[in-house]
């Protein structure tokens, strides 16, 4: 899945050793739990999904070449479980979230002027090497913070699309939104997220 994981395979701990390592397990579990809770907005459901994925990994620990293969695998399992739960869930939106959604109507007017062109300070700049950011743990902290800054509805829908990789029609059913509403929400989330990443990471260096 991730090509950057491959080259160092011989140096990394084996999957079996990793699963014997309490610190590794605690970190992994916490990372998975954060991911699942964000997406499901329900701690109990998230814990169940994480638990199932981890138990599966422990059962199959011999079949992984190394730690990164194991990690990729448990996250793939977790993603599938979350996708199943989201697809099954018909009533997902509470009234409060819908109201909040409406209040966000004009939120990117601060980015564009009246003719719909970028305001001068808001124009997207060139990003230096997004690929290397992926390998930098400080970047992930910024990324998390930027996600947390999105209005919750935007974050949820963005994550359904980009993390769980649901298709539009699946998100519309799970989150009970129209296609046009979905498109508007994703547009806003992407505008905000890229702005936040540029302000706090890509625009800061050099």
């Amino acid at each position: 899945m991730s090509d950057y994981l491959a080259p160092s395979a011989s140096l990394e701990p084996s999957a079996e050793d990793s699963l014997q390592n309490p610190q590794f397990l605690v970190d992994l579990r916490e990372q998975m739990l954060r991911f699942a809770s964000l997406q499901l907005q329900d701690v109990q459901l998230a814990e169940d999904a994480v638990q199932e994925a981890l138990v599966g990994a422990l059962k199959n620990s011999r079949s992984f070449k190394g730690r990164s293969a194991l990690k990729t695998w448990v996250f793939a399992i977790l993603k599938n479980k979350i996708a199943d739960i989201l697809r099954q869930r018909q009533r997902f939106v509470d009234a409060d979230q819908l109201v909040r959604g409406d209040r966000e109507e004009c939120d990117h007017d601060e980015l564009f002027d009246q003719t719909g062109h970028w305001r001068k300070d808001e124009r997207p700049k060139k990003w230096a090497d997004p690929e290397s950011a992926i390998h930098d743990k400080h970047f992930w902290r910024i990324f998390d913070a930027c996600l947390n800054h999105l209005p919750s509805r935007q974050a949820q829908i963005f994550m359904m699309r980009e993390f769980i990789e649901l298709e539009s029609h699946e998100i519309c059913a799970a989150a009970e939104v129209s296609v046009s509403n979905l498109n508007v929400t994703l547009h806003r989330a992407r505008l905000r997220l890229r702005e936040c990443l540029e302000d706090n990471w890509f625009g800061v260096e050099g």
Partner: peptide, 22 residues
């Protein structure tokens, strides 16, 4: 270009983030 980067970053995030070997 940033939209593509965002998608690439999101894929990596959902795969468990950066590999912390070493």
């Amino acid at each position: 270009r940033q939209l593509h980067a965002l998608r690439r970053i999101s894929k990596s995030y959902a795969g468990g983030g950066p590999e912390k070997t070493g």
